[in-house]
């Protein structure tokens, strides 16, 4: 019998693992940035809305803030929704449906890196949209606010991307590669309207206002409005609780989808 050598103890060093995660995130971001259908629509649409309604018609005030400032928060929330939902749901549905995820699974990639990268990508696009809105408002909308508020606004909205990335994963696990974007549109457009992201909450019909309380984007918008100094009715913590609950719910659904897929392939 041939001589037997022992298996070399191969594993990635912690440094290599860190690099792996960073690369997974970087390329997930680049991959989507280079899809104009995605990057242009999720970034340009909220900016366009803001220029039309926030800058051209932004001289009035809503409550104690200018319309131009108010709409940064609500279109910012709208932008976060689009960036988070489309990026995750569309890419997951496509990669699941067309076999790429199998290549990834057969590789030594840690599964968590795959999901972390999708969240990172959603948050990055959210950061870009919100930052651009803020820059537009500051430069052309006469918006003035303390730096601390700006940080709070951007921070809340980028953190607020997480629930909607989770929702995107949940949708992506139950949709085919072609139907995912359409389904997301069906969810995201009515939800945006109903949450007061297009028309300020105060001007919504009474019925819609009541529905809004059950829509997660409404709560994120309230947090964003608080950040710019707009008076709200509820404590911030109440809104965060809703968003955290919603995140857990979506992660639960996504996990169910993940297991369903595993069982289909491995069951």
């Amino acid at each position: 019998m041939a001589t037997v050598s022992t298996t070399p103890g191969i594993r990635r060093s912690p440094n290599q693992t860190l690099v792996l995660y960073l690369k997974e995130m970087k390329y997930e971001f680049l991959k989507n940035l280079r899809i104009p259908r995605y990057s242009a629509s999720v970034i340009v649409l909220p900016l366009m809305f803001y220029v039309l309604f926030g800058l051209f018609m932004g001289r009035q005030t809503i409550g104690n803030t200018s319309t131009a400032a108010y709409l940064i928060a609500t279109y910012g929330t709208f932008g976060v929704l689009g960036a988070s939902l489309f990026g995750t749901a569309a890419s997951l549905a496509s990669e699941r449906g067309l076999g790429w995820i199998q290549v990834k699974k057969a590789s030594p990639m840690p599964p968590f890196a795959y999901f972390a990268a999708k969240f990172f990508m959603g948050m990055m696009f959210s950061f870009i949209v919100v930052s651009l809105l803020l820059v537009l408002g500051l430069a052309f909308g006469g918006v003035r606010m303390p730096f601390q508020n700006m940080v709070q606004l951007v921070g809340s909205l980028v953190a607020g991307s997480i629930p909607f990335c989770a929702m995107g994963l949940a949708v992506g696990y139950f949709m085919g590669p072609n139907s995912a974007p359409a389904v997301i549109n069906l969810i995201y457009l009515p939800m945006s309207f109903g949450s007061g992201l297009w028309v300020p909450f105060q001007f919504l019909p009474k019925v819609v206002k009541q529905i809004a309380l059950y829509l997660p984007p409404y709560h994120l918008a309230q947090l964003a409005l608080r950040a710019i100094g707009f008076d709200g009715n509820e404590a911030n913590w109440t809104h965060w609780k809703v968003l955290i609950g919603f995140t857990l719910l979506c992660l639960g659904v996504a996990r169910f989808g993940f297991q369903k897929d595993e069982e289909k392939m491995y069951g």
Binding site: K31, L98, W100, V103
Partner: peptide
């Protein structure tokens, strides 16, 4: 593996 679509961008 045989894969229908690899990330193209």
């Amino acid at each position: 593996l045989q894969v229908a679509k690899v990330p193209e961008t």
